[in-house]
Design a protein around this nucleic acid. Structure first.
Lengths: 374, 374
DNA sequence: TTCGGTTACGAAACCGGTTTCGGCAAGTCT
DNA sequence: AGACTTGCCGAAACCGGTTTCGTAACCGAA
């Protein structure tokens, strides 16, 4: 005997009243049983639970929402005006988010906005329309307006990346500082003595951390830090080229450079080519992010890869727990970036003095015709 | 005098009852006025509309939903098991989708799934929980189960890409066939006579169209089609390399190749390098997609670029219109891909015979050290 | 046996909307 | 003038849940 008496093959949803009738109680009792109210006897609770499961009952989120205000939905507002910011990782990130969300019977609404003020409006709208119970905030800035807004609205949120002023925020982050430290140690082990550092944009909070990581690494390796070999605000390929050229022009250039951002590190290839220096031999590079382009260039760029899918998954989990009432200050996690060895780092082939001579020799080096990454 | 009498600064939402009180009517009347019921006088309708606007009333989607079943939400289920499939375009695509959705006071829920059966389950869940009123279906296959499912569920959907068996589906598509045709004509204008074609995976519906476009172009240019210079199923760089090498090994190789997929076209660079052929001179390439890597290789790959943001925007618009009741067969749009000229195509420098000689001469060509894309 | 206090559940109000139903007033027809 | 439409809107039911309130039944103690 089929259970469906409705005409439609795809039977209509089973509602709480159906369960109530089947269990011989009122819908109020069913609701309380399912929501773990204390004043329900263990006997009826299990009976209702079993019936509900057997009938495949799933409460309708938005019906609950008009009383509770919550729809089991996590919000994600993407910033589209940072060109190519999270582009290569977005797919993995979403996969991680929605997978864990889905496992908990939650869903994800994503919106985009071109930035600043518009983003705040979008967040407000989603909250007002109850289309998001809480938010994932990627790319946190040093002083983030979104955080201020959500805090005053008392809407839960989880940061992807720590804030300087953490306050009572929950967050997940990749330990970029440890990656930077490990990069230095790896280079030191290769035998490098003069190591430069090219940081990312100072408006990002991660930059501060990565700089600290670099310094820690240098200290641990007992290497001198030459302030003239530390620069920052390089987020694009061109900025990376400029930063590298600047270092190479020093009287004593570095034999290796640590980059905080892959995109900038790719610019170093152009700079090296200009002077006829061979990446991985004359100049070693280690970077961070693990964008696909790392594998496109030759030699491949050694980089610390971020597992975006895992990040999404953890963030979703933290947010859900916070919405369910856990204290945000206990909801903090971090993970390490994984080294992706390429050919861009190795033992130094030339001394800083030799490199300086090559650079000063001045003539532009012609790249050969059939290739070259720039 | 502030309007908010509530304690909370962020006043609670204004509900339909608030508007009703303010307008001096019942909430039933407000509802009918806002939803264009015929039995409301023009006078009260305008009065209610004005009041509602003035008070900033926005109906709560999920409150409406428990009666209407619709939440003003468009669903997007992304397939995550195709590695790097839509990766570079995803961000733009989402931006386009959510922008137009947002402009119409709609939102977007996105889910991911690893494919086939799981994807169907996800769709069902979203429909059951009323978290999506309709779906955008990217990457349509020749025989798509998602379409079958949604059709039987009577849930609206819009295809990104035409189906062979269109039936009553709404769709948006980029005219890949025209791009392929234009590619051939451009090469013919350069003076190429022997032009090869490397198609994408035969399981995709677009492949059939692009092949037709290539043939049309050849016919229009009054060039002979050599079946031995037509191959397919090249979606990755490696497959592109293999396809190219195969063509170059012919007794009379092509001087130019049209690719249906950028990723495969990038493989041609490796193949050319292997034989010491110069892309853009000894071998011209034109491709399709406009992935960022086109600008990374040297010479840059000439490609027809797809405007993913526009595509997302149009798709959202079509879906919303269909959910609002328009006939899907009238909801069909297409757009042209835009030529992105790079240096990978130009007048032929060598004849097919010369190329054949170079290829047969056999010795592997050494790429120079500082570069090479492979 | 009576009484006060729990326990466990039914009844009903409520959330913010939509939709049905019915009735009043004005206009139309015979 | 009375009957019949028609236009317009209020009243109330309804959607699928949650939550408050009240009380019957049970408990142990006096």
């Amino acid at each position: 005997m089929p259970l469906t008496e409705d005409r439609a093959v795809q039977a209509t949803r089973v509602t709480i009243s159906d369960v109530a009738d089947a269990a011989g109680v009122t819908k109020g009792t069913v609701s309380r049983a399912l929501n773990d109210y204390p004043d329900i006897s263990e006997a009826t609770r299990t009976r209702v639970l079993r019936k509900a499961k057997q009938m495949g009952y799933q409460p309708l989120a938005q019906a609950q929402a008009i009383k509770t205000g919550r729809t089991r939905t996590i919000g994600l507002v993407l910033q589209t005006d940072i060109p190519g910011a999270q582009r290569p990782f977005l797919s993995d990130f979403l996969a991680g988010l929605s997978q864990t969300a889905s496992d908990a019977s939650w869903t994800m609404t994503v919106a985009t906005s071109a930035g600043g003020q518009e983003m705040l409006t979008t967040i407000k709208r989603l909250v007002q329309e109850r289309k998001a119970d809480g938010f994932i905030l990627p790319r946190t800035f040093a002083n983030d307006e979104r955080v201020t807004l959500l805090r005053t609205l008392k809407v839960p949120y989880v940061l992807y990346g720590r804030l300087q002023d953490i306050q009572d925020s929950a967050w997940f982050d990749i330990l970029g500082e440890e990656a930077m430290r490990d990069a230095v140690l790896r280079l030191a082990q290769h035998g490098h003595q003069r190591i430069g550092f090219v940081n990312g944009g100072s408006e990002y909070n991660f930059s501060r951390l990565r700089a600290a990581g670099f310094e820690n690494g240098m200290n641990e390796a007992r290497l001198d830090i030459d302030e003239s070999l530390i620069t920052g605000d390089a987020m694009t390929r061109e900025q990376g080229t400029a930063a590298t050229l600047g270092m190479l022009a020093r009287s004593l250039p570095p034999t290796a450079i640590v980059f905080a951002v892959d995109m900038a590190a790719l610019g170093a290839y152009d700079a090296a080519e200009k002077h006829g220096l061979v990446i991985g031999q004359d100049l070693s590079l280690i970077s961070y992010d693990g964008i696909p382009e790392c594998q496109w260039v030759r030699p491949q760029l050694t980089s610390f890869r971020v597992d975006s899918q895992m990040a999404g998954s953890r963030l979703a989990s933290l947010l859900i727990r916070q919405i369910r009432g856990e204290d945000p200050t206990t909801l903090r996690e971090s993970a390490k970036a994984m080294l992706w060895p390429g050919g861009s780092d190795g033992p130094p082939r030339r001394s800083p003095i030799e490199i300086a001579r090559i650079v000063r020799s001045g003539q532009e080096h012609n790249s050969c015709e059939t290739g070259g990454t720039a």
